[in-house]
């Protein structure tokens, strides 16, 4: 249950940030486009993620206290930035409905939310890479988080804005490139980190590997789904730059999302702290 709450939280918030990045880029490329569906989706995902993160707390109603230690705690910093991101997204939705003619303000908010989000992903990764869990202490954590953010964001944005970007060839290229790059980086970061984990003398590192080994089927699913989703998208964008096929976009979105979600669940499930302990 705990892994599930954290999986939902991190996947939803990262997907929301990813979508917002592409909304900001899209608005930069074409000032007339609104990307209403994508903006609303990013906002809802952010809120769902934040609620899920509360489920993981022993005292959800005291969550506000987690804002106290911005100066020292990565977790506190991440909560601040997630909160600011969600506020900016909500503000955007309000403006889209209340003052749609104020395009530059909305675009400004999108850019601000995207930047806050990008920093937030760094904080999220730091929470884990600075902990005492060898499996998390690698650069792969940071790369995987950014890769998940970009790939999920790109593909969800595409699905949600399929009509609006029909004529935006550059945007489609950027999306395809982003997914390809993210997935390549993800593979490139994870393989050496697993090898390093195997070579480590830490018992905790080996316990994590053993857990991953027991879940090898799920791990295989993660990669097959992520790669299949990315390949499907690339193949389509290559051939059908002019007309995107909704069914194929949908299939590749589902594949990629399932892959990232399974992968994130494994990330939490394989958590083993260093050394001997009281528990």
């Amino acid at each position: 249950m705990e892994h599930l709450a954290l999986t939902i939280f991190s996947i939803c918030v990262q997907a929301a940030i990813g979508i917002m990045i592409f909304v900001a880029i899209g608005r930069l490329l074409n000032k007339e486009k609104i990307f209403k569906n994508a903006t609303i989706a990013a906002t809802v995902l952010g809120i769902v993620g934040a609620v899920a993160s509360l489920m993981h707390l022993g005292k959800p109603f005291s969550a506000i206290k987690a804002l106290y230690q911005f100066g020292s705690s990565w977790l506190s910093r991440e909560i601040w930035f997630t909160a600011i991101f969600i506020l900016l997204a909500i503000l955007m939705v309000v403006l889209i409905y209340a003052k749609p003619q104020n395009k530059s303000a909305i675009s400004g908010l999108a850019a601000a939310a995207a930047v806050v989000g990008l920093i937030d992903v760094f904080f999220m990764a730091a929470i884990y890479s600075s902990s005492s869990v060898p499996f998390w202490q690698s650069i792969a954590t940071l790369v995987e988080f950014y890769a998940a953010t970009l790939s999920m964001g790109a593909i969800l944005f595409l699905l949600l804005s399929i009509k609006e970007i029909a004529e935006m060839a550059t945007m489609k290229k950027i999306i395809a490139l982003a997914v390809a790059l993210a997935v390549i980086l993800q593979v490139a970061a994870v393989v050496p980190s697993l090898i390093a984990l195997g070579a480590s003398s830490s018992a905790a590192a080996h316990s994590s590997l053993a857990i991953l080994g027991n879940m090898a089927v799920a791990n295989a699913f993660k990669w097959i789904f992520i790669l299949a989703g990315a390949l499907l998208l690339l193949w389509m964008v290559k051939d059908e730059l002019s007309k995107l096929v909704t069914n194929i976009v949908l299939s590749s979105t589902i594949l990629l999302l399932v892959g990232q979600i399974v992968g994130r669940y494994l990330f939490y499930a394989a958590m083993v702290v260093t050394g001997v302990g009281l528990s």
């Binding site: 977790l75 929470i127 869990v133 050394g275």
Partner: peptide
Amino acid sequence: IGCKYCMWNCPY
């Protein structure tokens, strides 16, 4: 608030 982050951070 029972966030358990200290459980991930303490090496012991």
